[in-house]
């Protein structure tokens, strides 16, 4: 188990280094950052000065090392647009996005796993068709459109829920559903497929031949095995959701990382975008690592060699 964990950890670290490299090189994506910063009316002298002040004149590898060193200490750079430390803004907005992500993922799992199990228990029945319909709609609907429909229905017509802001938990209901619904189909279909496969396996027949109660057969013997691939998928989907939150947060005017990313893109605030990409990627890496550990816990074939 320890060897497995260490292996996974080293892979996670490698991914993190790669991500940091890519993120760092973002600065040079749109050409010379010094020219971009200096603006249209700048002289060659101004550009040279900016290059010196921001350290763009140093060798790339030195710049990367300095940037990485700062990032590791929590210093993610300075926003040229907001005239403040990037990390301050990010850690201000992060909890909001994390709350949204956690709520959305909880909603998605709470909806898709029971539905997937039900569909697998009664394949090709009404329940199964209903779940399939829900999945197809979820797959086909763009989340921004679904969000707008919800706003119109529950916010404007029925006036049940607030449509903007992040003041109370009520504000998170619609965004969580809009964001979570998007990942529901994949998780549900995988749960269903996994359960159908597991339910027809020999060890389920053994469990039934022992006279075990249907509930024990279903949850102890079947779900435990069927859920293993779902865990990995959920981690990946959570990553997609962090990306999706850019759209959803903008629609619901939630002051999170997603909206910040959107604004920063519009302002060409490179250090801010760089930091957001880095932070989100790190979350993704941590999550994948946690999913790997969870899988090892669930599946002794991974844990015990």
């Amino acid at each position: 188990m320890l060897i497995y964990a260490l292996k996974r950890l080293s892979i996670a670290l490698l991914v993190a280094i790669t991500v940091s490299l890519l993120t760092f090189s973002m600065i040079y994506l749109s050409g010379d950052p010094a020219i971009a910063l200096a603006g249209e009316s700048a002289t060659q002298q101004d550009i040279e000065n900016i290059r010196k002040v921001y350290g763009y004149d140093r060798p790339i590898i030195v710049q990367y090392a300095a940037w990485l060193g700062n990032a590791l200490q929590g210093n993610l750079g300075h926003s040229h647009y907001l005239k403040t430390e990037v990390s301050n803004v990010i850690f201000d907005r992060l909890p909001v996005t994390m709350t949204l992500g956690a709520c959305a993922l909880s909603f998605a799992l709470a909806l898709s796993i029971p539905l997937g199990v039900l569909a697998a228990m009664r394949p090709n029945t009404l329940v199964d068709r209903f779940a399939l319909t829900l999945a197809v709609i979820g797959q086909a609907l763009p989340s921004f459109w679904f969000a707008l429909i919800m706003i119109f229905l529950f916010g404007v017509s029925l006036r049940w829920l607030p449509i903007t802001g992040s003041a109370s938990w009520l504000n998170f209901v619609m965004p969580s559903i809009a964001l979570g619904y998007y990942v529901t189909p994949a998780v549900m279909r995988l749960t269903r497929a996994g359960m159908i496969e597991v339910l027809s396996s020999d060890y389920i027949r053994t469990a039934r031949a022992k006279g075990l109660r249907p509930g024990v057969v279903l949850f102890k013997h079947a779900l435990r095995n069927a859920i293993i691939p779902v865990v990995s998928l959920a981690a990946v989907q959570f990553g997609f959701m962090l990306g999706g939150s850019i759209v959803i947060e903008t629609i619901f005017a939630i002051n999170g990382l997603g909206q910040l990313a959107w604004e920063s893109i519009l302002r060409a605030d490179l250090p801010m975008m760089q930091a957001i990409v880095l932070v989100l990627s790190c979350f993704y890496i941590v999550l994948t690592f946690v999913a790997d550990l969870l899988n090892a816990f669930l599946d002794p074939r991974i844990r015990v060699s």
Partner: peptide, 18 residues
């Protein structure tokens, strides 16, 4: 499993791996 038990053909897959 109580008064009547059954042994299956495939020992490799008849036990729950988890």
């Amino acid at each position: 499993g109580n008064t009547m038990g059954m042994i299956f053909q495939e020992p490799m897959t008849s036990l729950n791996p988890a």
